[in-house]
């Protein structure tokens, strides 16, 4: 236990757990979200310690930054009504506390029994890296070995925007684009993060043609700032273009996956000579779709003619 980094890990781990408790216990909802953002950033830091920079980036940009923005804009929308204090019976709390304690105990026992630092699929990935068409292992898994998963993940994102556009409609007021203190508070948090993440992505791009999701998130952040600063206002006339942006990634990804399947090849089997180009093309289109979709998820509602007048008061 002389390694100072291990002490750092212990402190970081404890801080993360404490923050998780604090997020749920914090009475004020704004403070709750801010604590959650701190929690997310510390988790990302822990993942850097576990040599998972790609994951840390995705968590910081998407899981924390954009999720935090979504939470804040929702809070802004609903904060007119303070939460009604619904008393939870003490018995229910104790019972659930006991249940979750048991689950925690059981999972810890199970976790300690696993072969930590097992090789997993690292070896097959390394053996097939040559054939994958990319240099970065995580990108190879995402866009080649398990490309089907990644396609379905983009489909999830598409389902989300379809559902969100469907849900929010009618007479409700759109969230005000100018968000005052919340916006400024968030911008202070987010802007440096965007700069840092953007720079890192540029740097990492030199040897890893990866980061569709992280890149998309950074672009989405730009979209958020455009929306918040009213530099861009969604118009009903822009809907066809937006829809095209949402489906672009899925369509190109699925299209390429199917089109390569000829001459004895199966779907998703990129011809070796073109693998790199095709993956780059997919990544580019997916990045655009992710950026547009995430920004639209933040904006929330489908821009409709009926609600235009409301926005102009």
């Amino acid at each position: 236990m002389t390694d100072p980094l291990l002490i750092f890990d212990v402190i970081l781990g404890l801080a993360i757990v404490a923050l998780a408790v604090a997020v749920l216990a914090m009475h004020d909802r704004f403070a709750m979200i801010v604590l959650f953002i701190v929690f997310g950033l510390l988790s990302a830091l822990a993942w850097v310690r576990l040599s998972a920079p790609d994951v840390a980036l995705a968590e910081a940009a998407i899981g924390t930054g954009l999720t935090g923005a979504l939470l804040l804009t929702t809070l802004h929308h609903i904060r007119a009504t303070p939460p009604a204090p619904v008393p939870v019976p003490a018995g229910a709390i104790i019972a659930n506390l006991g249940l979750c304690g048991l689950i925690f105990g059981g999972l810890v026992v199970a976790f300690l029994s696993t072969p930590l630092q097992a090789p997993g699929l690292a070896l097959p990935v390394a053996q097939n890296m040559e054939a994958s068409g990319v240099a970065h292992p995580v990108t190879a898994v995402l866009l080649n070995f398990r490309a089907y998963d990644t396609l379905m993940e983009v489909v999830v994102l598409l389902a989300a925007i379809v559902a969100v556009w469907m849900v929010e409609r009618g007479t409700a007021q759109a969230p005000s684009p100018v968000m005052g203190e919340i916006y400024r508070g968030f911008a202070r948090l987010a802007l440096p993060a965007i700069v840092i993440i953007g720079t890192y992505l540029l740097w990492v791009g030199a040897y890893a043609p990866g980061g569709a999701f992280q890149g998309g998130a950074v672009l989405a952040a730009v979209g958020l700032l455009l929306l918040l600063s009213r530099l861009y206002r969604p118009q009903p006339a822009h809907r066809p273009l937006a829809r095209l942006g949402f489906v672009l990634g899925t369509a190109v990804f699925a299209g390429i996956a199917l089109l390569v399947a000829s001459g004895g090849r199966v779907p998703f089997e990129y011809p070796a000579a073109h693998a790199k180009t095709l993956i780059l093309l997919i990544e580019g289109m997916v990045t655009i779709s992710i950026a547009v979709t995430l920004a639209a998820l933040f904006h929330g509602r489908e821009p409709e003619y009926a609600s235009v007048s409301e926005n102009h008061k």
């Binding site: 097939n128 080649n144 490309a147 199966v266």
Partner: peptide
Amino acid sequence: VTRLGNWGAPLGI
């Protein structure tokens, strides 16, 4: 059975 990407499980899906 279709081995997507022709990798085969467990590397592929």
